[in-house]
């Protein structure tokens, strides 16, 4: 944690860390999305997706020995697609679904990461899939799996806002210099 934090500081452009700075206020809204369980539960550092929410209690490791697998799509004989279909199961506690259900790459860690750590990752092309912030914004707006976070199926709290709002917020944040908070 401490080491990542140091890297985050190093990467951070701009002089200001004041919490009332407009860019940081924008970031705060983005952080609420990225750190939301609908998003963070599949941005984990280890091998395991997480479950959490009203019916699942505090975040816990996805049961059934579900693992990341070589490419984030699960393992032979039990891939993500074995249970997660293209759409949400309509049954309460049924598996959520979206095309290409999978875990985010291990370097894109959000689960249990601080606001500053997530912020640094978002901006770091080495850890965000080689994207500019504009490309990140478009990804957030257009990707089907990302969109799932706002329509997560019965019994699950959606991520705050919408894909379009998140896209707009990221654009504004980028225009404001994409500042990252401490910690």
């Amino acid at each position: 944690m401490r080491r990542l934090f140091a890297i985050a500081l190093f990467l951070m452009p701009g002089p200001a860390f004041a919490q009332d700075e407009p860019g940081l206020i924008e970031w705060e809204g983005l952080y609420r999305v990225f750190s939301h369980p609908r998003c963070a539960n599949c941005h984990t550092e280890d091998d395991h997706p997480r479950w959490s929410g009203a019916h699942y209690g505090e975040a816990r490791i996805h049961p059934f020995n579900v693992r990341r697998g070589p490419d984030g799509f699960g393992n032979p004989g039990m891939t993500c697609r074995t249970c997660h279909q293209e759409t949400n199961s309509p049954v309460l506690h049924g598996p959520p679904g979206s095309p290409d259900w999978h875990l985010a790459p291990q370097e894109m860690v959000w689960f249990e990461k601080s606001s500053g750590e997530i912020c640094a990752q978002i901006k770091d092309p080495a850890r965000n899939g080689g994207k500019t912030l504009d490309e990140v914004a478009v990804h957030l707006r257009d990707d089907a799996l990302v969109a799932w976070g706002w329509e997560p199926g019965p019994g699950r709290e959606p991520a705050p806002g919408s894909a379009e709002e998140t896209y707009e917020a990221l654009k504004r944040w980028a225009e404001l210099g994409a500042p990252c908070p401490q910690g």
């Binding site: 699942y56 049961p63 059934f64 506690h93």
Partner: peptide, 10 residues
């Protein structure tokens, strides 16, 4: 209610 919250030995 189901095996998501009553998960026996695997």
């Amino acid at each position: 209610t189901n095996f998501h919250d009553y998960d026996p030995l695997r």
